[in-house]
Simulated assay, not measured.
Amino acid sequence: MPTSDQLLGFVLASAVLIAAPGPDNLGVVSLGVSRGRRAGVGFAIGCALGCLTHTLWAVVGISALIAASDAAFTLLKIAGAGYLLYLGVGALRSGGSFNQATGERRAPAVSMAPYLLRGFLANALNPKVALFFLAFLPQFMDPARPAAPQAAVLGGLFCVMTMAAFGTLGVYAGVVGQWLAERAGLGRWLDRAAGCVFVALAGKLLWAKR
């Protein structure tokens, strides 16, 4: 187990990193605004669970493989960018949660499950997150102690913090989306805006370097 000083430093550093703008929280905001609180919170939980995947990868050595192999990094990057592009194009092409003829809000998402899966895949298929965990976790681990249990504890803690922060963000994004949808002429553009966010994130990931 990490020491109390290591845990405190990890919590403080993680809080700053989680609060910084990035692909995951932008996805939470865009879906929360366009599809409602359940969609935003579901995507947030999925992103947090994706962090557990990267923790496991770091423990078993897959992240090290991604860091060392151009082919592995590129393959995962293309898969992640392709999935984000799929989400973006789908949002741009569909009527989404708004009636395009009237601009009125349709029923919000009733299930978190589809959005949880989207958030999980968007995070788990991002090689930059894998490299982040590979570089970040060891800074708060005691080299004299077994690495795997320490990485599991730190990764789990990061997941819980991410879930709490992003979940709160998803709730507030849903409130903002409801307010915007009630304004004439704004509701019909929210799904399009969400689609543009995911397309932009796909482009950013596609051009990412190790």
Rank of each mutant, 00 (worst) to 15 (best):
L7T: 03
L8A: 14
I18T: 12
A20F: 13
P23Y: 01
P23C: 10
G32F: 02
G32T: 13
S34E: 03
G40D: 08
V41S: 04
F43Q: 08
F43K: 01
A48S: 14
A48D: 09
L49N: 02
C51T: 13
T53V: 15
H54T: 04
V59S: 04
G61N: 10
I62L: 15
A64Q: 15
A64L: 13
L65E: 12
I66N: 06
A67L: 14
A68M: 07
S69P: 05
D70G: 07
T74G: 01
L75M: 13
I78Q: 07
L85D: 01
L85V: 02
Y86Q: 08
R93G: 00
S94A: 14
G95L: 10
S97L: 06
F98R: 02
N99E: 15
Q100K: 14
Q100R: 15
A109D: 12
P114C: 05
Y115W: 15
L117A: 15
R118T: 00
G119A: 12
G119Y: 02
F132S: 06
F133D: 02
L137V: 14
F140E: 13
P143R: 07
A144M: 10
A147F: 15
P149V: 11
G156N: 03
L157A: 13
F158T: 01
C159W: 07
A165N: 09
F166W: 10
G170R: 10
A173L: 12
V175C: 01
V175T: 08
L180E: 05
L180G: 04
L180W: 07
L190V: 09
L190H: 07
D191K: 05
R192N: 07
A194Q: 06
A194D: 13
G195N: 03
V197P: 03
L201G: 00
A202C: 07
G203M: 11
K204H: 09
L206Q: 06
A208Q: 11
K209M: 10
